[in-house]
């Protein structure tokens, strides 16, 4: 009994407190967005990132943004809605779940979404570089991740073979361009 009451209490707390570990455009940063994982109802605070289904119901309200679960399929009607979102968060339920990388690339490269794409959930230092390459520009680190390490390893590589959201040119093209 007590524990479920405690759970409810914790659920009611914003998971990402403003000022917790967020890296935006490569810089440590703070912002006002709270994250709510409550599927049932809107949180009291604003601005808030809420589950996609809730956002679809209340998306016209100011200060709400959706987060997508990793198994989201970007159907055309959903994409139309998402393109109007002020921010889109993509959840990593486990850092080994790689679907979020594809979702971010599709939002950026296929659908041209230009707002913030934020990684939430099991976001670890050693994933940040690939996330950035796939189009995430805001990285909400898991609470226990040392920010210093994260900043140090944001960009472990100065060159990449494949194009991504960051570099649009494959290395083989760049080589040809540079030698011609």
């Amino acid at each position: 009994m007590l524990s479920s009451a405690l759970d409810r209490f914790h659920d009611a707390l914003p998971e990402t407190l403003p000022g917790s570990l967020l890296i935006k455009q490569g810089q440590p940063s703070q912002d006002a967005w709270h994250l709510s994982r409550d599927e049932e109802g809107l949180p009291a605070y604003r601005p808030a990132i809420v589950p996609l289904t809730l956002w679809q119901r209340h998306g016209d309200q100011e200060g709400l943004a959706p987060w997508l679960s990793s198994d989201t399929v970007l159907e055309p009607t959903l994409v139309d809605q998402l393109l109007r979102a002020p921010l889109i968060a993509i959840d990593f339920p486990a850092f080994t779940d790689g679907r979020g990388y594809t979702l971010a690339r599709l939002l950026r490269e296929r659908h041209g979404y230009e707002g913030e794409v934020r990684a939430i959930g099991d976001v670890l230092i050693d994933q940040l570089y690939y996330m950035t390459r796939c189009g995430f520009d805001a990285l909400a680190l898991r609470d226990d991740q040392p920010l210093e390490d994260a900043l140090r390893w944001l960009k472990p590589f100065s060159v990449s073979y494949q194009p991504g959201v960051d570099v649009r040119e494959a290395l083989f093209e760049r080589r040809l361009r540079e030698t011609s």
Binding site: F95, T96, D97, G98, Y101, T102, R105, Y129, Y130, M131, R133, C134, F157, S160, Y161, Q162, G164, A170, L171, F172
Partner: peptide, 17 residues
């Protein structure tokens, strides 16, 4: 070799099923 380069440190495919 082209496939090696394409697949090496591919940002989207490091956490496949």
């Amino acid at each position: 070799e082209l496939i090696r380069q394409w697949s090496t440190l591919h940002p989207e495919f490091a956490y496949l099923p």
